[in-house]
């Protein structure tokens, strides 16, 4: 239990839970954005159930990105990242621990809130179920892809917009297949294919992203 992986995971989770404000921000942003959309769209229930999944989805993506901005910057500024780079254990493993902690502290709350937002958007219960499943499958992908972007801009102070510009295009495939899965459920079609593809994206990014993140961190924050 004292492996560097567990230690870093515990540290990051502790840090997250000692700052409840930071922990709550993405979730609140998520709720506020979805609410805003329903005001903007006029509150017609019929229309809300059509655009609902897309709205919940885009909002989830944006809140995940919002929370990713500072994932490495605090560590970079107080020198922890340098120690991670110098540490004898593989940087990839440490990165993985950080990403897992990030997903546990921001991804899980988003997943937990999404059914409520589905109800606000007048979605059927089976649609909500698939919506939650797709969000659950994709938030880790957002954490992984977004961490890659965050690693590239780790030395920039205000990089929120830049980070979105870098990573949102890379998230489009996940978005497409999630929305397709939800649309298929709404029209009583099989969703297995879309969900399998989402799983494939998850496995692919789990395999590749920690290396890309570690490489970018070494490049940007090294020397």
């Amino acid at each position: 239990m004292n492996s560097p992986f567990m230690a870093l995971l515990r540290r990051d989770l502790l840090l997250a839970f000692r700052n409840p404000g930071d922990l709550a921000t993405p979730v609140i942003f998520f709720i506020v954005t979805v609410t805003l959309f329903s005001f903007a769209a006029g509150g017609d229930l019929e229309m809300l159930s059509t655009i609902g999944p897309g709205v919940v989805w885009s909002a989830a993506l944006l809140s995940a990105m919002l929370s990713l901005d500072g994932i490495f910057r605090d560590d970079y500024e107080d020198g922890t990242l340098e120690q991670m780079l110098l540490a004898p254990s593989a940087l990839t493993v440490l990165v993985f621990a950080k990403l897992l902690a990030h997903w546990l502290s921001t991804g899980l709350p988003l997943i937990a809130v999404s059914p409520v937002l589905g109800i606000l958007m007048n979605l059927d219960s089976d649609v909500i179920l698939i919506l939650v499943v797709t969000i659950a499958l994709s938030t880790p992908v957002f954490s992984l892809v977004g961490a890659f972007g965050a690693a590239l801009v780790v030395t920039q102070r205000k990089a929120g917009i830049l980070l979105s510009l870098l990573t949102l295009p890379l998230c489009i495939p996940v978005l497409i297949f999630s929305v397709l899965a939800v649309a298929a459920t709404a029209s009583q079609q099989p969703v297995g294919g879309h969900l399998s593809l989402l799983c494939a994206f998850l496995v692919f990014s789990l395999t590749v992203a920690p290396f890309a993140v570690a490489g970018s961190l070494r490049l940007m924050a090294g020397d």
Partner: peptide, 30 residues
């Protein structure tokens, strides 16, 4: 968007060599 992201990233980073390498990694991911 990918092109614009590359240009924005390169112009955001002050250190030229780092800017170039960060851009290169982004290009490969893209």
């Amino acid at each position: 968007f990918l092109y614009l992201g590359f240009i924005a990233l390169q112009s955001a980073i002050q250190d030229r060599s780092k800017a170039q390498q960060a851009g290169a990694i982004l290009l490969l991911a893209g």
